[in-house]
Amino acid sequence: MTTYIIRRLFQLIPVLFGVTLLVFLLMHLTPGNPAQLIAGETASQSTIERIEVSMGLNDPLPVQYVNFVTDVAQLDFGYSYRNNTPVFEEIKPRFWITMELAIYSTILSIFIGLIAGIVSAVRQYSVRDVTIMIIALFGMSMPNFWLGLMLMNWFSIQLGWFPPTGWGSAGQVVLPVITLGTAGAAVIARMTRSSMLDVISQDYIRTARAKGVHEQIVIYRHALKNALIPVVTVVGLQFGTLLAGTVLTETVFSINGLGRLVIDSIMARDFPVVQACILIISVIFVVVNLIVDISYTLLNKRIDMD
């Protein structure tokens, strides 16, 4: 097992290399001179040259890349073009807002998804099952930003139950979390259902029944434990989708998180900030997936050995 974990950690290296390289190139592939962007349109040629030198923009690209990675490893993402503040300082307060949003939404989607999936599978083809699966299909097919707008229109504007924008108070959390968590809940519900149905037809479930085990216990102990194993992977992938989905949700609800910062920075061509945000979100996603993969393998070891 330790060797497996070490091997997985080694596999991380090319991925992180590729991710940093792509993010680094983002700045260089973009039309326009960064020095010009910093100095402003009216800056003199000499000012621009001075900035180019101070930023090392005249160094060969590989040197610039190595410098970039070294800086990033020390959480130094450079300075924002817009505010001339360290990018890290810009990001820090927003980072936790986005993490909160993503984590709450993930918890919500796991909670709802699991319950719905189990309830569906236990009574396959019942009215309950069909209803839940239709709702799940809708949940998967809705653009989350549209769902957010509709929830806002109904619950904030018409009914006045929740504040329409912002983040922080309990009321402000509700709608964004539902908005972001719905698609994930739908995906997890579908996955849980099919995994449960798969497990319920296994021989060892028949064994449990033949032993005289109560049907409830057959489902919730013997079947569920096995059925959850493949669901773990889906949860990991969903977390990534959710993390990226904050871009849209934060825009809808005017939440000052990382997602909104990305959009604002792209609009303002503030590339150091864009780079940092994309890098941070991707690295979190890669690490979460690594953890999920390892736990999946741990959980699955017993079955795979057959």
Binding site: L22, V23, G240, I278
Partner: peptide
């Protein structure tokens, strides 16, 4: 695949 969801398209 390391860029989740809409993020890659956005970049």
């Amino acid at each position: 695949l390391a860029f989740p969801g809409i993020l890659l398209a956005l970049a």
